[in-house]
Design a protein around this nucleic acid. Structure first.
Lengths: 269, 269
DNA sequence: TCCGTTTTGTCCAGATACCGGACAGACCCC
DNA sequence: GGGGTCTGTCCGGTATCTGGACAAAACGGA
C-alpha cells in the first residue's frame, strides 16, 4: 500500500526524520528571497504554510545561532552574519570567475567581441573578469576590478533591472548623487532599466563613448536573486538589430548553463 | 521544581523545541571549519558528539537542500551551493568595504600612511579598497580591483599564513607557476608565511620596490576562517622596528573590532 | 489617554517525528 | 578472501517537536 500521500504537491523525494531541518531551510530560503526589506513573522508563516508558533520557535533558534537576525525596531527578520560567513567559506569552491571562464571563452571565440563578467557588491557592481575577443577593432576596455554604482555598466544595468521593484527603486535613489559623474541620472537610468526588464536583457549605447553598443544578461541564483551578469560590447556596426538577437540568445543560453552549474554544485578545482 | 538539568555543560541559554536545528547548524559550522579538505561522516560524528546515524540522516537532508554537497568519490562533505547563495544574498547587509570604511579612515588618519583592504577570492586575493594617508611621500599604489595569487601582497600574505596548514601548502603549490612573474617563488613565500605565523602579522620589504615596508593583519570570521586582511605600507624610514610594534597593535585592534562587528551583525546602511 | 486591532511572544499537553542501537553493504589493504 | 574501516539503512520507544490557546506588546485612531 502506498504511504499516505501528503496533501502537498509532488513531494516524491520525501526524506524521513528531517522535518524540522527541512522547515528551517524553507524559512531561510524565504527570508533570503525578501532580504532587502526583511520579513515579518506572520508573512513568513503565511508564505511557508507553517504555524506561527512553529516559525517563531525556529526563528528564535536561527537567530540565536546567527543564521538570521531580527531588527530590534521593526521586528523584521533578515539573513544573519553566519549566513554571510558560511557563504564566504563556501565561496572558494564556487568561484564565479572560474565557473564562468569556459563560457566566457566560448562566447569570446564565437563572437570575436569582448566579454565582461560583473558581480554585484552592495550598491555597486564590480567587473571581475574580461575576455578579449579576436576582432581587431577593440572598444573601450573596462578594467577588471572597476567598481561603479549599479546601473552604470551594461552588465550592471542588467543586474539592477532584475532586482525586485522595491530594492530597485531604493538603489537608484541611494545612488542618484553618484550617477552624474558617470553621465547618468536617476530618471534616465530608470527608463533604461525598464527597457531592459521588457527585453529580458540590457542594451545600450555606451553614453560616454559614441559608436559602441553593449548587451548585458543577468545571472540569478536558485532563489531568483540576481547577483552577477555577463555582458558583451562591440562597435555599433557589429551590433545591428539582427546580430543583437543572436548575441542575446547566445548570452542567455550560456547564462542558463552557468546558473545550472552552480545549482548542481559542480566541482571546481 | 527546577527543570531536569541536562547533563551537558553550561547550556544556560537553552532553547527548547529546536534540538535538531541546533544540531544541523552545529554540523554546518563543523563542515565549514574543514571546508578545504572536506569532512568524513565519522569525523563529523566524533567532532559534534552526535551519533553516526543521526549525522547521516541530517547530512542527507542538508545535501538534498543544497546546503552541503558530498563528493561522490571520496564521500566527503563540503558546503554546498545553497550556502554560497545565501551568503551572496546576505552580503549586501555585510558589505566588507562599508564595514571597514571607518576603521580604515581611522588608521589612515592616525598613521598618515596608506591602508589597503584585501579580500580572499579562491587561490587569489583582490584589493577591494584603499585609503590614502596624509603623509606626502606616497609609496607605490596598489590599484583597487587588482587580483594576484595569494601571498603576493602583504595583506594577501597575512591571509595565506593564517590558513590551515594543509590548505596553505596546497595553495602555494597550485600557485607556484604564477609566482615568479611577481618576483616570488614557492620556498621564499613559504618562509615568509612561516615568519608571519610566528609574528601574528605579515611584514615585508616589497620585493619589487626597495625602500618600502608593509604590514598585514588578517581578518577571520567567527569560525576562525581567514577571509580578508588590512594592510599598511610606507617608506622604510617610516617603518622602524619601534613603529612597527605600534602599527601592528593598531591594526590588530581595529581588526578585532571589525570581526566583532560582523559577528554581532551590526546594521549596515 | 483610552480602547480595538494587529502582531509578536510564550506555554504545555498530546502525538509524532526523531533518535540511535543494531545490522547490512561497500570498500580497501594485506 | 578475511579482517578492518567506513558508509548507508531500518525500526521500535520515547524524547522532541508541534500547534491550539492565551498573554503581552505595539500600533493607531479618536
Amino acid at each position: 500500500m502506498a504511504p499516505a500521500k501528503n496533501s502537498d504537491d509532488d513531494n516524491q523525494g520525501r526524506l524521513t526524520g528531517t522535518q524540522s531541518i527541512e522547515r528551517a531551510l524553507l524559512l531561510l530560503r524565504e527570508i533570503a528571497a525578501h532580504n532587502r526589506s526583511g520579513s515579518r513573522l506572520l508573512d513568513l508563516a503565511t508564505r511557508t504554510s507553517l504555524q506561527r508558533p512553529t516559525v517563531h520557535r525556529m526563528l528564535k533558534c536561527l537567530a540565536h545561532e546567527g543564521m538570521v537576525q531580527q531588527d530590534s525596531e521593526t521586528h523584521r527578520y533578515f539573513l544573519g552574519p553566519m549566513a554571510f560567513e558560511l557563504g564566504l567559506t563556501a565561496a572558494p569552491r564556487f568561484n564565479l570567475r572560474e565557473i564562468c571562464h569556459p563560457a566566457m571563452t566560448r562566447i569570446a571565440e564565437a563572437t570575436g567581441d569582448t566579454i565582461f563578467l560583473t558581480q554585484r557588491s552592495g550598491l555597486d557592481a564590480v567587473c571581475i573578469d574580461r575576455h578579449e575577443g579576436t576582432f581587431p577593432i577593440k572598444t573601450f576596455t573596462l578594467e577588471i576590478g572597476v567598481r561603479r554604482p549599479l546601473g552604470v555598466g551594461t552588465g550592471s544595468l542588467a543586474i539592477l533591472a532584475a532586482l525586485p521593484e522595491e530594492e530597485f527603486r531604493s538603489i537608484i535613489n541611494s545612488n542618484e548623487p553618484r550617477l552624474q559623474e558617470h553621465g547618468l541620472n536617476g530618471p534616465t537610468l530608470l527608463s533604461q532599466a525598464r527597457k531592459a526588464q521588457k527585453l529580458g536583457y540590457a542594451l545600450r549605447e555606451t553614453p560616454t563613448l559614441a559608436g559602441v553598443r553593449s548587451l548585458g544578461q543577468v545571472l540569478r541564483n536558485q532563489s531568483g536573486v540576481p547577483f552577477a551578469a555577463l555582458s558583451i560590447s562591440a562597435i555599433s556596426s557589429r551590433m545591428a538589430d539582427r546580430r543583437i538577437q543572436e548575441l542575446s540568445t547566445l548570452l542567455r543560453n550560456e547564462s542558463r548553463l552557468i546558473e545550472r552549474q552552480i545549482a548542481n554544485g559542480m566541482e571546481i578545482r
